[in-house]
Amino acid sequence: MIDEASIGAYFEARLGSGARVTRIKRTFPGISRETYLVWTQEGAAEGGYIFRTDSVGGPICPVPLEFEWKVMQHLYPTAVPVAEPLWFDAAAEVANGRPVMVRRLVDGSNDLPGLYDEGAEAAARRQRVALDHAEKLATLHTLDLEAGGFTRFMDVPASPEEAARHDFDLWIGRWQTIRTDPMPLVTEAAYWLEEHLPRNAPRVSVCKGNNGMGEEIWKDDRIVAMSDWELAFAGDPTQDWALSQGMLTLGDPEVTIAHYEDVAGFRLPMENLDFYRVWEVWKAVPTLNNGLRAFLSGEDRRVSRLNLGFGRVKLFEQLLGMMIGKPIDEAAAIVTQWRKSPYRPENAAS
């Protein structure tokens, strides 16, 4: 963890012209990456920034911070709402050589108080929120990868038919490199999933990865900035709906998807959703297991890293064991049931 005085001095030196840091707040939980909100006084004006760096020992997710920086840099000129990326420092002294990314603070919150209240008014509000999210995803999914420069730094599938295969190969490669234990059941699950790879993506899109509730910045029930792009990829837009953190069940799923399709201008092959719901469980294994490496090496012995990188991974292995060999729709139903655990925002009110 970086001390606040060092971050303050870093900003004052970087901004110059008598800028003064007035307040710093570390965001919770920041296990994979540390994020600080920084407020400044710059002459008569007030400024706000977000300072983001890898945790000591590296991030949980096996994707470099520079990738997230590049995604935001290329999204900022588009209609997709993202915070303005300001600078990237590949080896910042203030972070003992860790990479640092700074973006402008957007006025809003990742929380929507009262969203899960009882009554027709709250239900209508939830539907409006779901529709706004659907519009933002559609805007993202219809970007031109080539014209937007995404093909210069993203691994892009050769065609929509290859989208799922491409993501599969990418993550199998990562798993073979980073795994801390052979976990043969995870290997077997990969072979099972490989037999079910969809080949009917409507197009190759920039996808966000984790999205929806808890992942975006909202103001007046609208998304003002889409955040956390570390798991962004080029692939089947249907996959993002498998990672939409309860947005599909926030309102009427058919209404929400119909609105998305109207804005996007293409139909989603909803049968792919079941595959991606299961595939995302598999992907969670390498994503989290990567975090255990710094624990085992002694670089970062935080218990949160241990629980995510080991216990949670073994839990997902158990979950894969419950699904493996079943028809994909049955497996997806198991995931859906499992996801109804109480910490999920959409279940918090019940």
Partner: peptide, 22 residues
Amino acid sequence: YLDRHLERERAYFFPVYVGRPV
């Protein structure tokens, strides 16, 4: 074998690690 191994380990992880992740 994998099924048996999973069954042997189950109580160490399920439902122990179900719930809020952090």
